[in-house]
Simulated assay, not measured.
Amino acid sequence: MAGEAASARSVTLVVDVANVMGSRPDGWWRDRAGAATKLLELMPPLVGTAVGLPDGGASVAVARIVAVVEGRATDAAAPAGIDVVAAPADGDTTIAEVAAAAADAGERVVVVTADRGLRARLPSGVDAVGSGWFNELTGR
């Protein structure tokens, strides 16, 4: 699924870290910051690669990843090459705001979340993909 990004359209991934962590019952709740750090460490290799979206459309090149963390996960260590945003309150509001700002700046935005309520709050033109797709992409 990942490959060369030369001919693919670039995209910004906005990752709902809490939702992706919660998609696998691997004990993440015992150490939210540690689990978030492990997840964040899987992200840098995706930047600059081409990935196929689950809709079967053309590949997109991951130009940038913005990972939104909330609660105790805000203590996670941020790896180089990933923009980590700590939500001041609820993560969904911050994710919707980050996605809207990136889209307003002319970026194609894909939000990674399985949260239906959050998906409904995303601005027009912002796509969403599930946590399973992201887990597969990162080998998680």
Rank of each mutant, 00 (worst) to 15 (best):
A35N: 06
A58Q: 07
I82Q: 05
V66C: 01
D26K: 06
M43I: 09
R72W: 07
G81M: 05
G132C: 14
V126S: 03
A63P: 10
P25I: 02
S7F: 11
A2V: 12
R72P: 06
G71F: 10
V17D: 01
P45A: 14
L53F: 06
G106P: 04
G117V: 07
D16L: 02
V60I: 03
T93A: 13
A114K: 09
D104G: 13
V84N: 02
A58D: 11
V20H: 00
R116W: 10
A103F: 05
A114F: 05
R119Q: 15
R119V: 13
L42P: 02
W28P: 04
G71T: 08
M21V: 05
S131L: 14
R72H: 10
N19T: 07
G106R: 13
V69R: 02
G56F: 09
V66E: 00
V11P: 03
R32I: 00
A76R: 01
S10Y: 08
P88Q: 10
R30G: 12
A76G: 03
A6C: 07
T93C: 06
A102F: 03
V20K: 00
E70F: 08
K38C: 11
P79R: 05
A100N: 08
V112N: 02
V11A: 11
P45I: 12
V17R: 01
T49A: 14
I95Q: 00
E70Y: 11
A78C: 10
V62R: 01
I82A: 04
L122Q: 15
V60W: 00
P79L: 04
R30D: 07
R116E: 15
A86M: 06
M21R: 04
V14Q: 01
V84Y: 02
G34L: 08
R119I: 13
V126A: 03
T49Q: 15
A58L: 07
V111D: 02
P54H: 04
V17S: 01
E97D: 09
L137D: 00
L42R: 10
A114D: 15
I95V: 08
D83C: 04
R72N: 08
R119N: 14
A128M: 08
S7D: 13
G57I: 07
A73Q: 08
M21K: 04
D90V: 12
M21S: 02
G3N: 12
A67R: 02
G48E: 11
A36T: 03
S23D: 12
S124V: 12
A76L: 03
L42C: 10
D115V: 05
T74F: 06
V60K: 00
T93E: 10
A96T: 02
A78T: 13
T138M: 05
A103Y: 05
I95M: 01
R140M: 11
V47G: 09
S131R: 13
A103H: 12
V47R: 04
A80M: 09
P44S: 12
A58N: 06
P45C: 14
D31E: 06
V11C: 13
G81Q: 09
A67W: 02
V60T: 01
S23F: 09
S7C: 10
D31A: 05
A61Q: 07
A103V: 08
A33C: 08
D26W: 09
I65C: 13
